[in-house]
Design a protein around this nucleic acid. Structure first.
Length: 265
DNA sequence: CTCAGTGTTCAGTG
DNA sequence: TCACTGAACACTGA
């Protein structure tokens, strides 16, 4: 479920796993959708023998920096994930798209079941699209209330759609947008221009609180607070939230949106 | 068998 | 140009 907290958790994992290490062997799967800019063989050849110097992230976009100045850009899409296998005998998951071997016998693996995702070799990930077109990452930078007001006051779209706009808030995805609106008690359909200063203020604090909390528990859903809508929205199984209020599912901003009508004014 | 889905991008419209 | 909407992308599992 890669939204900002998951990607940040994987970035930290990759950091521990790989920074300062030399890549000894590379496997890059023959997949022209994942490898849309460079041939897998070209990526593998380039990576072999290079040292990983750092890890970076903005929103849901992640990349490793290499000793020759290049970046290995990775996007997880809907079903991508990152694995670090510390024991040589550990079994791999299926659908491995990229595998980096290090001299200490550990492996860093990117897998993606449904092939909506990307692996690219870039000269400067941060300076080029899609990363360069992203808005601020709410975990990396503090979003001031003035900035929020300026961004939201001009938009006519429903607040849910704008929360999902990566050019405004990098890293907010479908369930986090719903969680923010649920906790802020704002209807997802409400047009941005209609939001009061108080609502924008609440939106801002809820966004910060939810993202920070999710990152602090390593994006482990079982450690999210019990009263989060998150636990009740998946699979459309639950009829009600923690307080017994009815959850409704509607299309907003082109996505299925879980919300509780009785909570909003 | 049909359809929704954690994300992004692009075409079409106003 | 821009803001906005809806479809497409691939594949799995309900």
């Amino acid at each position: 479920m890669p939204e900002l907290p998951e990607v940040e958790t994987w970035r930290r994992l990759a950091h521990r796993a790989s920074v300062g290490k030399k890549i000894t062997i590379v496997y890059a799967d023959q997949d022209e959708i994942i490898y849309d800019r460079n041939q897998p063989a070209e990526v593998a050849k380039h990576l072999k023998g290079k040292t990983i110097t750092g890890t970076e992230r903005r929103g849901k976009h992640f990349w490793l920096t290499l000793s020759d100045g290049y970046d290995l850009y990775i996007h997880f899409g809907m079903t991508g994930s990152l694995w670090w296998l510390e024991k040589p005998e550990s079994e791999e998951p299926s659908h491995v798209k990229l595998r980096l071997h290090f001299a200490d016998g550990t492996r860093l693996i990117y897998r993606n079941m449904r092939r909506i995702g990307k692996v690219r070799l870039l000269e400067d990930a941060r300076a080029n699209p899609p990363v360069s077109k992203l808005g601020p990452d709410p975990i990396e930078e503090t979003l001031s209330l003035a900035w929020m007001k300026e961004k939201l006051s001009t938009r006519k779209a429903p607040i849910k759609a704008v929360l999902l706009d990566q050019a405004v808030f990098a890293g907010v995805g479908n369930w986090i947008a719903d969680e923010i609106l649920y906790q802020a008690r704002i209807a997802p359909q409400k047009r941005c221009v209609e939001l009061s200063t108080d609502e924008i203020k609440t939106l801002r604090t809820c966004m910060m609180k939810i993202l920070r909390k999710a990152v602090n528990v390593d994006a482990d859903a079982s450690r999210f607070p019990k009263n989060w809508l998150f636990h009740y929205r998946w699979g459309k199984k639950a009829e009600t939230d923690a307080q017994g209020d009815r959850i409704q599912f509607d299309q907003v901003g082109g996505r299925t949106t879980a919300w509780v009508p009785s909570r909003v004014t």
